[in-house]
Design a protein around this nucleic acid. Structure first.
Lengths: 112, 112
DNA sequence: TGGCTATTTGGTAAAATGGCCAAGGGTATG
DNA sequence: CATACCCTTGGCCATTTTACCAAATAGCCA
């Protein structure tokens, strides 16, 4: 496998890896409803705030979320809403249905 | 976070985690062109066959691929082609473009 | 300034992951 | 039957990931 191709798959894997954690998936879903500060997310998740902060930094690292500091709080929002489209397919995989059970949700392309 | 919800995000994470590896992404892309036996994939990947076999077993474990033994060979094929849809969005994330740069590919829902 | 809230960063221990080698079980072939 | 091939599994080690605590940083307000 040639080097450039290899690098491309590694880049893809980095993005998927960033999503491949229950807490981070929860964060993505939550942010799809609107921006949230670290404190709010921490309350819902019930882990240490430092843990949540690190999860957010992983998502930010690959460009899935964006942060904005306002006052003493940092608000996170979804930058790539397209990742939400994964969920229908993922659910279909979980159900073990065939490919046809994966109906893409109607997505309005929205600037977040 | 309630227990059932928690479990749902864990299930989703298991599927994404199965995809979150360069070699496994390569396998998925390769299988999208048609079934392949372990030997063929091993040649292309250039790793030990046992390593490739384990990657295939991870993909099979979550239901993304299917295996079929014929003679002394085992042929793997893509069971959930919908995962291919992820790639456009993932590429958009890599490019760092905004959401709109993620154009869903025209996908024909095909029974594999 | 001092104290309080909000968040990130560093350290560390436990668990999970990934890769290779070796061994084992089928299957074809001579 | 013996041998060669195809594939999977188990063992082992190195690396990565994750979570918590503690400490550091930054903004707010009295």
């Amino acid at each position: 496998m040639n080097r450039a191709i290899q690098e491309q798959f590694e880049a893809r894997a980095r993005v998927l890896k960033a999503l491949a954690h229950p807490t981070r998936l929860f964060i993505v879903e939550e942010l799809s409803k609107g921006e949230r500060c670290v404190h709010e997310l921490t309350d819902q998740i019930g882990a240490d705030m430092s843990t949540v902060s690190k999860h957010l930094s992983v998502l930010k690292g690959v460009g899935i979320v964006r942060d904005e500091k306002r006052g003493s709080q940092v608000f996170y929002s979804l930058r790539m809403g397209c990742v939400l489209d994964f969920f229908d397919c993922v659910e279909a995989v979980i159900r073990g249905g065939d490919d046809a059970t994966c109906k893409p949700r109607k997505r309005k392309v929205q600037r977040l």
